[in-house]
Computed example of a mutant assay.
Amino acid sequence: MKGEKRLFGEPWIEEVLGGPPWLRRPLPKVGCPREAPVARMSTQSTHPPKPEAPRLPPGIPNGQRRHTLPASEFRCLTPEDAVSAFEIEREAFISVLGVCPLYLDEIRHFLTLCPELSLGWFEEGCLVAFIIGSLWDKERLMQESLTMHKPGGHIAHLHVLAVHCAFRQQGRGPILLWRYLHHLGSQPAVRRAVLMCEDVLVPFYERFGFHAVGPCAVTVGSLTFTELHCSLQGHAFLRRNSGC
């Protein structure tokens, strides 16, 4: 919705949390389902064609849906996904605020150095939502944390969460963030997640275990932010059956 977009996270707050209801529904599985080529019919015979059952590769039962792209997939991003990510970001942020959390060269920079700290949601092979992060090695965020990746750090700085305009208000942002925190929790070197957001979004992130630690030292133009931290060690979400 125009006019309500914020620098970090989705430009809307959906009332879907507080004992997240989507966790009681099966989530799309990560990874690619089996693939099978579309059956081909010969057209070289001079006789009228006869109905012929499709020829499927061994192990693919007759009647099983055949496709070449997974209907829904979660995976880390690569530098090849940078343009798609920036297009989503540009529509969500630049058109409203005139600034963007990450620009194209910065997206490529982080997806080259630390792709494992990103997560994308793909539908039919197309990126529809994503999070990009990097490692930080100080207690609080600083201006330089916007563009730097510290390989020895133990803090995951979440730079941006964005959802394609055609897929907003469907609960995708919360689901993606929940999966991303679970993904970070599986990495022993990462002990905490941090982010900065405008005050209106603080309650949204608090529902995921983030807590405000005060005003953020980082500013972007005239925009100011609140800094939030979330411990990943022994966090409750790692013990829940979220389907992640």
Rank of each mutant, 00 (worst) to 15 (best):
P58S: 13
R40N: 02
C76F: 05
V128T: 12
P49T: 03
P54S: 05
N62D: 14
F74L: 14
P37A: 00
V30M: 12
A36Q: 10
K29F: 12
S95Y: 12
G59S: 04
F110G: 06
V99K: 12
P58D: 07
K29R: 15
S42K: 09
E87S: 01
L102A: 05
C100P: 07
S118I: 06
P61D: 02
P54D: 12
L97C: 02
F74V: 07
P58W: 10
S95C: 13
F86R: 00
I60L: 13
G98I: 08
C100K: 04
P28H: 08
R90L: 10
G31H: 14
W121T: 03
G19C: 10
C126R: 13
V99W: 09
C100H: 11
V99E: 09
A53C: 11
Y103S: 08
T112R: 07
L135P: 06
A92D: 06
G63W: 06
L102W: 03
P115L: 05
P54V: 12
R65K: 06
C114G: 01
M41A: 05
P20K: 04
K29L: 15
S118L: 09
T46M: 09
A36K: 10
A85Y: 06
W136K: 00
I88R: 01
P57M: 07
I60V: 14
A71S: 15
I131F: 11
S72W: 12
G125M: 13
L119Q: 04
W121M: 07
A71K: 14
V96F: 06
H109I: 00
L56H: 15
E91R: 13
E123M: 14
H47D: 01
W22K: 05
L135W: 10
F93P: 03
F110R: 00
E35D: 12
C76W: 03
P58T: 04
L69I: 03
A39Y: 11
L56C: 02
V38M: 15
